[in-house]
Nucleic acid binder design. Sequence first.
DNA 1: ACAAAACCTACAAATATTATAGAGTAAATG
DNA 2: CATTTACTCTATAATATTTGTAGGTTTTGT
Lengths: 138, 138
Amino acid sequence: MLSKKTKYAFHALTYLGKHKDQGAVPIQEISTHHNISHKFLENILLELKKAGLLGSKKGKGGGYYLIKLPNEIPLSKVIRLLDGPIALLPCVSLNYYEPCEECASQEKCGLNMVMAEVRDETLKILEMKTLQDILERE
Amino acid sequence: MLSKKTKYAFHALTYLGKHKDQGAVPIQEISTHHNISHKFLENILLELKKAGLLGSKKGKGGGYYLIKLPNEIPLSKVIRLLDGPIALLPCVSLNYYEPCEECASQEKCGLNMVMAEVRDETLKILEMKTLQDILERE
DNA sequence: ACAAAACCTACAAATATTATAGAGTAAATG
DNA sequence: CATTTACTCTATAATATTTGTAGGTTTTGT
């Protein structure tokens, strides 16, 4: 399941997408609108900024804004940033690979291959669908 | 990511599948072989039994054994039992449905539909693949 | 100068996961 | 029939992760 962090991130991105002609949007406005703790959201937006999805402006009249087009932000990117791996096993994760400690050998692990399939199908969707798709549905 | 509980469950089921002509297999044997805490595994096997996947025999010479054919045990069943929902959002879960608290309306939630797609593709695989498939690969 | 708002680090609280303990119950066996 | 083996059940402890808070610093517009 997606964490609250990730869900909040999507809410914030969606809000910014809807208000992109408004320029910089202060955290306060988003947190009030979506009923999210101001400080918690702060951390999330900072991460999104560091990852290159958002720009920001300090001081009075400042806030956050998208620096990419909504169709350039795949859902997979957001999930990976806030939640980590999309795969169900570390040994089939593309971005957060780790060998399974309890598995003797990776070749002999029967789960391995099935979970790689699940990962591929999931990514097909999450990499194709973008913030744009979410915006179109709200 | 799958929890240890779920991974242990798969290991145990696989072990039981490989040793099914041996009759009842005591917890001890599995926990030693896979290096799992005896007591922890105990809880897991009990859950699998209550769910109708395993049978058990008490006393000397007792243990657990499969009461279904490996091809009758889809991976989805095991994951749901130990880990809960397979879907990424509660509002698109088939077995553990709950409305998303922070979403205003479900129809207006842009994530909803995409995550239902992900769920469907994931289930296509996890419901088709069974313990049999894992056994064949080990 | 002042107020608004992002930036940053650390910490606290809540929740979930993983693991352990110990007292029952049932069955086999000598 | 006593003993040993092994499942059953419930409660609790330990650990890790997630969620949320606190408080100060820096930047910017007026």
